[in-house]
């Protein structure tokens, strides 16, 4: 999504959260329609189990309802805030079940059986966005990309990521920083 459109969307979603904070169930349903698919997909990526991903999604939306009043627009954008809640919920499930974190790469995930059929990608715009992000990810050096994937989807702490990658913690932090900034920069360039 181009930066301007995303900002407008974030503003609308912040308004939805403020309405949810007042007990507005229609706003809650609207937010569900906007966020449920990407959050469920994130849950599938992290938990690799449809039933668990669905339960995590439900837990996350109950938390969004309960915590909407504490949402602070200065701290994060609405979707990032929701992603953080979903990721923490998934991480709790991974740890509770003493499961090993997901270690497949993004490419593996895309090829796996739960990956989306092409028919679900409804619009050209969505395909363009996916292609744009894929291109940006491809441009990141493999070790930085791996660190980023582990940071985003595995539930590992950065210390555990360092152990997993057999690298000093400082090196992993540097990879994460460079990876995030390169991704951000590439996506901004593509959006222009």
């Amino acid at each position: 999504m181009p930066p301007t459109a995303q900002r407008e969307s974030a503003a609308e979603e912040a308004v939805l959260l403020s309405r949810i904070a007042t007990g507005d169930q229609a706003a809650f349903e609207q937010l569900y329609r906007k966020y449920s698919r990407p959050l469920f997909s994130l849950g599938l990526r992290m938990l690799e189990n449809e039933k668990e991903a669905e339960e995590a999604l439900q837990d996350t939306f109950v938390k969004l309802w309960n915590k909407a009043e504490s949402y602070d627009a200065r701290k994060s954008r609405p979707f990032t805030w929701s992603v953080t809640i979903m990721r923490r919920t998934c991480i709790d499930r991974l740890r509770k079940n003493n499961r090993r974190p997901v270690s497949t790469t993004l490419e593996d995930a895309r090829a796996s059986q739960w990956a989306i059929p092409e028919t679900v990608r409804k619009t050209t715009e969505l395909n363009d966005d996916v292609d744009r992000v894929n291109a940006a990810m491809q441009a990141i050096p493999p070790h930085q990309k791996r660190a980023l994937e582990l940071a985003l989807f595995s539930g590992l702490t950065h210390t555990e990521i360092a152990e997993n990658l057999k690298q000093p913690l400082g090196t992993v932090k540097t990879w994460l920083r460079r990876g995030m900034f390169q991704l951000s920069s590439s996506l901004t360039e593509h959006a222009k």
Partner: peptide
């Protein structure tokens, strides 16, 4: 800017609708 990049990554994951009864 970084949040925007993170959000793009999440939205670019293989997307699936949650089961209909979830809501």
């Amino acid at each position: 800017g970084l949040e925007s990049a993170l959000e793009d990554q999440i939205r670019a994951l293989p997307q699936r609708e949650p089961p209909g009864a979830s809501f």
